[in-house]
Design a protein around this nucleic acid. Structure first.
Lengths: 239, 239
DNA sequence: TAGTGGTCTAGACCACATA
DNA sequence: ATGTGGTCTAGACCACTAT
């Protein structure tokens, strides 16, 4: 299955060439005009691909000089953005395991972290415990709105729900708002994550939206504080 | 002082119109062709401005329909990205105060969180305590490389170092890598932040780079866990 | 002076949503 | 059928870096 989009294809090709050190960190990519000849495209299309590399931290463009390849490995991997646990596991080879604790239908209760607009709506609730190297690390609690995803099979919950949403259901996941806080752990969490009393946990709550701006999922990820690490690549916004 | 860039000017104009509810959340912006007539520009230039709105969470584009204005206020404000404390203070009106604890020259020591490439280099060290509503909330420790910024005046440390770098020195701050962890607080930190023993703190360490990819600053921001909150707007990366 | 990226244009064709 | 955003083009001029 090839991409329809020229610039996405060029982007992917450049990403693999950078991650495989065909273009090495510290060196410059071919110039935009050279790339446009290489790929048989216009310069603006090349620039679209490069823009993508830029925002994802692969290159830094320097006016008058060229596109400098950055040392991506030093950046570990941005846990930022919207990436499913399964995808993280695969790209980082984390040796992890998932236990599905609950999978039921319920009505989104008031007073929870859910926005008011979906309180009272029906949703699939999935609670999963993630073990890394046999140590409990994260509790994921997902609420998936039933009007968009009627049912979630157990086998999907055990693997990647995002893969299911995107490839099987054809949903286009587009953006999310995330909030990170540090909070005391309640009894249930203490037991699941195997931590002493008075110990804090890191809670990442997010609302995830589709391409047409419909809210379709809210998530609460409760991390053991000592195993939590969040890496972000950020660019300064022009004023 | 006006902008040279047409698309940046259009972007800023649209941002103010959205934040002032001239374009209301939940409604659509004028179409791209209408905007290009309004601003007297080509459609591609309009699209560049809209791309900027998109990545900053102001709008969601829906194919065949238009550019939907999102409810920015619901997203509080992204503390993500590269934003100085002073800028945050101003945009959120946090009623905060800064105490400069230290301002000295030193040599970047080995074994710290600094990358090896700058160990041994000379830097200005600035330690500042941020009080919000008279409560200690954050300790900022900045190391600013002397080969790029020779000296930092005390008055600058009391206000915005970024404003000084960008407007007085003409430096172009471009990107940063940040890492967030939760760690136990040492004695010094306990006293400064006024927290009990065994209490954890949130540590945000970052490396900040200029437009020409030179590393010029590393920072360690130590937050009281109970006052820490990090909000992020993220977009799903196309595969 | 030559090469690089940054901006902008005018036009084309496509995919999708709506009526 | 019309209007919307998504992609792509070929060319132009500018600002900056190097030699």
């Amino acid at each position: 299955m090839t991409n329809q989009n020229k610039y996405l294809g060029i982007y992917q090709d450049l990403v693999t060439k950078i991650t495989h050190n065909i273009y090495e960190a510290g060196t410059f990519l071919p110039s935009e005009t050279q790339l446009s000849e290489l790929y048989g495209s216009s310069r603006e299309t090349i620039r679209k691909a490069l823009q993508n590399l830029l925002t994802n931290g692969y290159i830094q463009k320097i006016r008058g000089k060229g596109s400098l390849v950055l040392d991506v490995k030093r950046f570990v991997f941005p846990v930022s953005g919207i990436t499913s646990y399964k995808e993280l596991d695969e790209s980082l080879q984390m040796d992890s395991e998932t236990k599905v604790l609950q999978l039921t239908k319920l009505t989104i209760p008031t007073g929870s972290f859910a926005p008011e607009s979906i309180v009272g709506d029906e949703a699939t609730f999935i609670e999963r415990l993630r073990l890394v190297k046999n140590e409990p690390s994260v509790i994921d609690r997902d609420y998936i709105l039933s009007n968009i995803v009627p049912t979630v099979p157990l086998t999907v919950a055990q693997n990647s729900i995002y893969e299911y949403f995107e490839n099987k259901l054809g949903l286009e996941i587009s953006y999310a708002v995330k909030k990170i806080t540090v909070e005391p752990a309640d009894k249930t969490v203490q037991e699941l994550l195997d931590i002493p009393e008075t110990e804090s946990v890191v809670v990442v709550r997010s609302e995830t939206y589709l391409q047409d701006s419909r809210l379709f999922q809210i998530t609460e990820a409760i991390h053991r504080a000592d195993r939590f690490s969040f890496v972000e690549f950020a660019r300064r916004v022009k004023k």
